[in-house]
């Protein structure tokens, strides 16, 4: 008598068990296997090292973006904040004669400040995140261009580039370690700390979260502060990689970060987030771009494919939501 009713329940729960990272894992596997099969240069250790170095910036921004999206918000200013911070490093070292490391710390400070501006306006001013970060995006991009009349600042000290690009720890690039550590810290903060829990609770239902006695304004603002700080840190990596500070650095990086996060299975409306998914999303985008370059195609094909991947990811997310 129980058998007929038990079957649908079993399939239902089986569907629920599918982790949010399921889709991105398959996409990543397909991309890696495909490029590894058709392109011998793709499956070399050297390419893996290069790829992991290139992903570091995106890993940092993706972690911040996951935290912001977990609250149900969005931060489209990160690319512009990165450019502003990068120009800060360039200007402080070349024009103000600062020590390069002090300038890097200042860059992280500037990023935090930008994030705090976003956070205060969104949480205190109760303004829509997309409008606020759209405004700060425009302002930061303009600010970045004002340092050197819209030109880039080159000739930064060698040691910045050598430290970040050439250092290895335990045989792996420093940049890979940085990205991984950042992602793991993000995951720990989100899943294991009271702050992370409050973030998710706030993203799930802000009214309920407020009524439960959480300091919602502070929590929401903190998400944007963290995102800004990480953008400042990503600016250090960006500047180090090119040994040049450019005002148009980080263009489209906010879109890439959002894509990586959504691809990874974090729900855009907030309340559910997975940093592991973001890590896989970052890896997917990096592998795709690297593979497309190695088979001799241009970046725009990669971006076209990223667009398709994003649509598919959103579609999968929707299917998961409607068939619980």
């Amino acid at each position: 008598m129980n058998t007929p009713t038990a079957t649908p329940i079993a399939t239902k729960s089986a569907k629920r068990i599918l982790p949010p990272e399921f889709g991105v894992t398959i996409v990543l596997a397909v991309i890696v296997i495909y490029f590894a099969a058709i392109c011998p240069n793709f499956r070399t250790v050297e390419n893996f090292r290069l790829l992991s170095k290139q992903s570091a910036q995106l890993a940092l921004l993706g972690t911040g973006m996951t935290i912001v999206i977990a609250t149900g918000g969005i931060d489209i200013s990160v690319g512009a904040v990165l450019a502003l911070c990068s120009m800060t490093i360039g200007w402080l070292t070349m024009n103000a004669g600062w020590n390069i490391w002090a300038a890097c710390v200042a860059s992280i400070g500037v990023g935090t400040l930008c994030g705090a501006t976003n956070g205060v306006l969104i949480a205190r001013g109760k303004l829509p995140p997309i409008v606020v970060t759209l405004a700060t995006m425009a302002a930061c991009r303009a600010g970045a261009a004002m340092f050197n009349g819209g030109h880039s600042i080159s000739g930064l000290p060698e040691k910045l580039n050598t430290t970040f690009d050439l250092t290895n720890i335990a045989g792996l690039p420093l940049l890979l370690w940085l990205g991984v550590v950042c992602l793991i810290s993000g995951a720990v903060v989100l899943k294991k700390t009271a702050f992370g829990r409050q973030l998710l609770a706030f993203g799930g239902n802000r009214v309920a979260s407020e009524l439960s006695g959480n300091r919602v304004k502070r929590i929401e603002a903190m998400a944007y502060v963290l995102s800004g700080t990480l953008a400042g840190a990503a600016a250090v990596l960006n500047t180090a990689h090119k040994s040049t500070a450019t005002p148009d650095a980080g263009q489209y990086l906010e879109l890439t970060a959002i894509t990586a996060v959504v691809l990874g299975g974090t729900v855009i409306t907030g309340g559910k987030a997975t940093v592991l998914g973001t890590a896989l999303g970052v890896a997917t985008i990096s592998a795709l771009i690297s593979g497309v370059r190695l088979i001799g195609q241009e970046d725009r094909l990669a971006w076209f494919l990223v667009g398709i991947a994003l649509l598919l990811a959103v579609e999968v997310q929707r299917t998961r939501k409607t068939t619980p």
Partner: peptide, 26 residues
Amino acid sequence: RPIDQYGLFTGAVILSAALLEGWRAQ
């Protein structure tokens, strides 16, 4: 002025519009 500064103004204008809207709603 360099055209790059234009973003600063656009940003400021968007923000003031948003703040005004928030104030209206309140």
